[in-house]
Design a protein around this nucleic acid. Structure first.
Lengths: 225, 225
DNA sequence: CGTAAAATTGAGCTGTCTCAATCAATGTGG
DNA sequence: CCACATTGATTGAGACAGCTCAATTTTACG
């Protein structure tokens, strides 16, 4: 019963992403407000948090102040699937917007995985998706130019938001600051600003008033390819 | 019976790494020689290959000739744990040295996972290790300088080779070309050469005659930190 | 409404790249 | 076992993508 329930939640939150649109119910839900650190790097977490609403980042912070965003966390996503199998968090999780998360019991999750092949497959395919994005980021950072990387990030986010039904025509709500884009692409905010200015000038992409508008998707995808 | 056998092999190859030193037995073993492409990007692989002997790379190749090495594959390692759960390979696998691999049946692997919690844990902890290295690489590429990245790569390989008992004092057999280091760190071979020359000049690290010698581990680790 | 955070712009700098040449090592066929 | 061919290492000169520093304007928040 519990296993099944868990499984249902997982399907909703992680995979079908349908609950994001519905009313939040679970008692384990925790709200967070914008621009807060929700979990600290190297913290031990006894459960597996899944973002329920809002945007957040998973960031690796170096001692000298440099930081690299490893992933943007959107509704329905685990901070990292690694947490299903280990307890120590290797990143800092910072909220971007207001939102909420739910914490799933690790043992129950694992029980659900062994009891239900479907749950097993879903969690593992989420892990594969996470791993695929990481590899994509490695290629971007290692072998692509600044504008290619920014284009790639915008495309990735667009595609993910589209799956969440958050897009509307060529436009989508977009709470990222230029510093988020910089920390995700390994650039400086100053240079990100120049790249985005160039994109705007070319009539390809426009970010303003917390909205991202893609004016020439073909061109953007070609640049990111 | 089969499940157990598989599990045993896995322990040997992937986790305890003990079989690497012993005689190869399995009939599914395939030999490869140096500087060959073993698997192609986007190829469908019906089984899960594990490197048994020798060095190889998993490389993502872009259409314009740029390439990024995602990981170096050492004895006992899967190309990527993703292959346990999906069939399409997203990278090219190229051998560096002569060597061999064994191909495990995917379905049998998965059966072994569900039958044996220990196997389950081992495969997933291998996946976590893979994911951890990927995240480390992202941070390196995004936020560290050329010499930090090269130092980091040498340290990573040193530590992995040490676990395989391949190191001898401060020295270890090291078949990588400077172009491998370049493709792994997102640099050019010319610049890698300059960085390595600097390392040598400082008496920190020396690579010659297919051997890596670490002359000042403390300094190297501090640089890579 | 004041203050802090974010975006924008400009000037100059540097880490890393490109191009190109040379030299060393490794492998190959005869 | 040699001569050649190929691959890898090294070095130098010059270029440029992206950085730093710094000032200014705009936007957002308490």
């Amino acid at each position: 019963m519990l296993g099944l329930g868990l499984c249902g939640l997982l399907i909703d939150f992680k995979l079908d992403r349908s609950l994001a649109a519905g009313p939040p119910i679970s008692q384990s839900q925790t709200e967070f407000s914008a621009r807060r650190t929700i979990f600290h790097q190297n913290q031990t977490v006894d459960n597996v948090p899944i973002i329920c609403d809002g945007w957040a980042t998973a960031t690796f912070k170096l001692s000298n102040g440099r930081r690299q965003i490893l992933s943007f966390l959107l509704p329905g996503e685990m901070i990292t699937c690694r947490l299903v199998f280990e307890t120590q968090l290797h990143v800092t999780v910072d909220s971007i917007t207001d939102g909420s998360y739910r914490a799933f019991d690790r043992a129950q999750l694992r029980t659900a995985m062994s009891n239900s092949p479907a749950t097993f497959d879903r969690i593992l395919s989420a892990y594969n998706a996470e791993s695929s994005r990481a590899d994509q980021l490695i290629v971007d950072l290692g072998r692509r130019s600044a504008s290619e990387r920014v284009a790639g990030l915008l495309i990735e986010l667009w595609d993910r938001l589209e799956k969440l039904n958050k897009t509307d025509g060529n436009s989508v709500e977009f709470p990222l600051r230029q510093s988020h884009i910089a920390d995700a692409t390994g650039l400086t905010t100053v240079y990100v600003n120049k790249v985005l200015g160039e994109f705007r000038h070319e009539g390809m992409v426009d970010i303003s008033d917390r909205f991202l508008q893609i004016r020439n998707m073909t061109k953007l995808r070609r640049l990111a390819a």
